[in-house]
Structures are given as structure tokens and as C-alpha cells.
Design a protein around this nucleic acid. Structure first.
Lengths: 180, 180
DNA sequence: GTCTATAAGGTGATAGAC
DNA sequence: GTCTATCACCTTATAGAC
């Protein structure tokens, strides 16, 4: 609270006057941050784009969102550690359209467009590939680029294409000859 | 410190008697936890196995390690948030053989065994796919399996095969017909 | 609304009896 | 080695003056 008050150029008492408690302040900030993400996912799942396009634009939007809000993942993970129930309630109530995603995955398989894969795993894989480098930034930046910030930013940007390629490449059906 | 003392059935004073400070205690615990991981990576990179086998056994060992030590990732991420320099020093001094990995990746590409891919991205991808479900456990467990623990444990086990498949499938060279 | 002052409780760490 | 008592400090939160 002290650091937030300093940053805002006011004092702690005023912060409590506005937000009543640390808990309340937290909820407000968290909801705002998180709903960006939920909106992103759900709009996409409902859209009329092809499955490939959906995956591409999800990855693009999501990595851009993460680059613009680099503290969000740490924030969410802290919440996972301290109060997973509240977080889960929050996510569930926003209702991420997971069932819809799983259906779309199995449809694509039946159409022969992708190999067989469990939608749950694919969902986890996509999120993991996008989020992890943001979480691990301080370490990866050090290991890969001797702490050069702009080199790491470039890495994150090339990563957008790389993750798309990685996912699509992995989803190719096992036998490609049908198409030739 | 209070919680640790309670868990150990002693009191805070004795904890300080043994470990001098919270900082010292932390370092000891962290080193022990982390070196399990570093050993794992480095032994593997040095081994004589094929590239495919190395990836497979890394994924297998790593996910097993994470299932057995589910608090490790949260521990490391907390440290990333609070003291990334110390963590980076620690990792660098242990010397994960990143250069060796990158060389092996480009060799495999030149041999035509895999598609072109930046070793850094591949490294990040593999770790991400293994670690993320452990970090996100409380949320994923709720979203996917209505908080059924054993269902989620099964998910993590099937994930070992799934991640291997995902990686290998994604690394297949773009044109497969050469082999036929 | 905004501040100062202060309450109430928790934290890491130490002193000192046993 | 192990405990109790206590310290100096920090945190969230409130009371009350302006």
C-alpha cells in the first residue's frame, strides 16, 4: 500500500479512503487486468474465422497483450498461490468457452485438418508457450542475451511467429500425402 | 519462519539457531531444490543418446520431477519476482549447457532430421510445456475437472506422452517425402 | 478529500534461562 | 539444543484535525 500510495503521489490513508481495504483494491485491479484476457479468448472462439486463423490471431493478440502488460502473469500466479478459489470463481463466472474450443478441435480432427489431439492439452500448450517467456523474462534475458533488454524484446517479437509455426507444425496430420 | 517452525514442530528461535537468518535458510532450500533440475538437464545434454531420445527422456524426467516437487516452480517464480539477480547468478554458476543444446539443434537441422528452428525458442518451448500445468494446477484442475485431484493427476501423466508427441510432431521436417 | 498520528498485530532476529 | 520473552520494525487500517 505504501508503494502504491507513493507511486500515486498520495498517502496510505487516502488509499484506504478510496478503496476501503487492500483486498478491495486488489480485486478491482485484478478484475480489470484479467477481463482483458477473457474478452480476448471468448470473442475469438465465437468468431467466424477458420480454426487456423483463430489460433494465429489468438497467439498474436495474447503475446501482444502480455508484452504490454508484463506484470499480469506474475500477478495471476501470485493469486494462484495465495487464493486459488477466488481466482477460479472469477474465471468460472466469466465463463471461458472451453467446451466450445474442445468441440472445434475435434471437428478439425474429423475433417482431417489436424492430427488427433486432446483439446485440453492443446489449450494448455498454447497458453504455456505464450505466457512462459514473460514469466521467465529476467532469467531468460540473462541466460540468452546477457541482460540486454532490447535483444530480449526482439526475441519476444520473433516469438509470435515462432509460436504460430510451432503450433501449426505440430498439428499437421500424421499423413500429409492425401493433399499432394 | 513461523509457519516453517510450526511445520517442523519447533519454534522460531530454534530455526534462527540452526540457520542464522531467513536468507540463509532460503538459500539452502533453494539450492537443493534447484540443483535437481540443473543436474537433470546437463547430464542429458552430455549423454550419447540421439537427439530425439534426449528430448524424450528430458521431458519424462522433468515432468516426473515436477510432479514430485509441485511447489518448486512457484518457489522459483517467487524468486524471479523478488530477486532475479541472485537467481540468475545461481543458474549461471551452475552453468546450464545452453550453447551445447543450440549446437545440437542446428546439427540436427543440417542432418535433415528436424525443421529449422532457433534453439532458444525450442528450449523455452520445452520448459514451458512441462512447467506451465504445474504452475496453473489449481486453475486448470478447477476448469477442466471440477477440482477432482486424481483426474488432474491422470491428466499430468498422459501429458508426458502428449508433450513428447507435440514436440516431435512440431519438429518434423517440412517435407517428409524424402523418407518414403 | 487530504493530511498526521496512532492503533493493533505480525515479522525477523536476539538475549538469556534451563 | 531448546525454550520464553522481548526488541525493533513494518503492515493494514482507523480517528480526527483541517
Amino acid at each position: 500500500m505504501q508503494e502504491i500510495a507513493d507511486e500515486a503521489g498520495i498517502n496510505k490513508a487516502l488509499l484506504h479512503y478510496y478503496f476501503r481495504s487492500k483486498e478491495k483494491l486488489f480485486e478491482i485491479v485484478f478484475q480489470e487486468a484479467f477481463s482483458k484476457f477473457a474478452r480476448n479468448v471468448n470473442e475469438l472462439l465465437r468468431s467466424e474465422a477458420s480454426f487456423d486463423q483463430k489460433i494465429d490471431s489468438f497467439i498474436e493478440n495474447y503475446i501482444t497483450l502480455l508484452i504490454d502488460n508484463p506484470y499480469l502473469p506474475g500477478f495471476v500466479i501470485g493469486e494462484i498461490g495465495s487464493n486459488p478459489e477466488r481466482l477460479l470463481d472469477f474465471i468460472s463466472s466469466r465463463g471461458i468457452l472451453l467446451d466450445s474450443f474442445q468441440e472445434q478441435v475435434s471437428e478439425e480432427y474429423q475433417k482431417g485438418n489436424i492430427r488427433k489431439i486432446d483439446g485440453k492439452h492443446l489449450f494448455v500448450n498454447i497458453i504455456a508457450l505464450c505466457v512462459f517467456p514473460i514469466i521467465g523474462r529476467p532469467i531468460l534475458k540473462g541466460l540468452f542475451f546477457s541482460n540486454d533488454n532490447s535483444a530480449f524484446d526482439t526475441f519476444l517479437l520473433t516469438r509470435q511467429e515462432e509460436v504460430k509455426r510451432f503450433i501449426h507444425s505440430s498439428l499437421r496430420p500424421d499423413i500429409q500425402n492425401d493433399d499432394l
